[in-house]
């Protein structure tokens, strides 16, 4: 019970996110209207992705320091789940954009940046697939993972800020930035972020355990 409290917390927070996110009252903003509810499902995907990929990088660094195979397993699984979160982030974003901007893909800087970010990790998976020797694979992919992550940071945090984005809160669009984020929205948004991050960690730890079992049965 003491070990599993955070899983119970995740479940409760997720139920709260869905109920609160879909049913609570939301502010009526121009253009956004009811689609503002996407805030609780789209934005946390990116928080989740960044956290999961950061954990993956930390384990890659650990691998380079200690050369323990288990660190490599953790790194790859967290990267896997992080990329899944990224894909869901793009899909939920496109779904929302189709209502708010009238197009599935409008070449917004943030859309492009996230697509490039995913390309980096697809390249990471291809690199892993191309090396036979397990120790070599772990070491070389750890190096690429760290390199790729440090290239991803300027992409996600600096580049979209240099150009105007269609995203709410940018370029004069009404949005949920620091000034006009409604306190009612906050009440659901912060728990939602925590819930999605915890869910990602949960999935990743299960996958790590599956890998471990597979290795033991071999």
């Amino acid at each position: 019970m003491r070990k599993h409290w955070w899983k119970i917390l995740t479940t409760i927070l997720l139920i709260y996110t869905f109920v609160g996110g879909l049913l609570f009252d939301v502010p009526r903003l121009n253009i956004l209207n009811e689609t503002i509810r996407a805030l609780h499902f789209h934005v946390p995907m990116w928080f989740g992705m960044i956290v999961l990929l950061a954990i993956s990088v930390v384990y890659s660094v650990n691998y380079l320091k200690d050369n323990k195979a288990k660190f490599d397993t953790v790194a790859i699984e967290f990267a896997n789940v992080g990329v899944i979160f990224g894909i869901f982030g793009i899909l939920t974003g496109m779904f929302w954009a189709q209502y708010a901007w009238g197009e599935w893909w409008s070449g917004d800087p943030k859309q492009n940046a996230s697509a490039i970010g995913l390309l980096i990790y697809f390249a990471y998976f291809v690199l892993r697939g191309s090396i036979e020797n397990e120790e070599q694979r772990a070491r070389i992919s750890a190096i690429y993972n760290i390199f790729a992550f440090s290239a991803l940071i300027p992409l996600l945090f600096i580049l979209p800020r240099l150009t105007d984005s269609l995203h709410p809160g940018n370029g004069g669009n009404p949005g949920f930035n620091a000034y006009d984020l409604d306190s009612g929205l906050r009440l659901v948004f912060y728990p939602a972020v925590l819930a999605w991050i915890l869910l990602g960690v949960w999935i990743a730890t299960i996958r790590v355990r599956i890998r471990k079992l597979e290795l033991e049965t071999l």
């Binding site: 940046a113 490039i116 970010g117 390309l119 980096i120 390249a123 291809v126 690199l127 191309s130 090396i131 070599q136 070389i140 190096i143 690429y144 390199f147 790729a148 290239a151 300027p154 992409l155 580049l159």
Partner: peptide, 30 residues
């Protein structure tokens, strides 16, 4: 660095290209 990584991973030019494109893209856009 990518060429060093690719050379350790079997040394194909294709690998070199796919590993470097996404990393170099933000730089290229600037």
């Amino acid at each position: 660095l990518v060429s060093a990584i690719a050379s350790k991973a079997g040394g194909s030019q294709t690998l070199m290209a796919i590993l470097s494109f996404p990393i170099i893209l933000p730089m290229l856009l600037m």
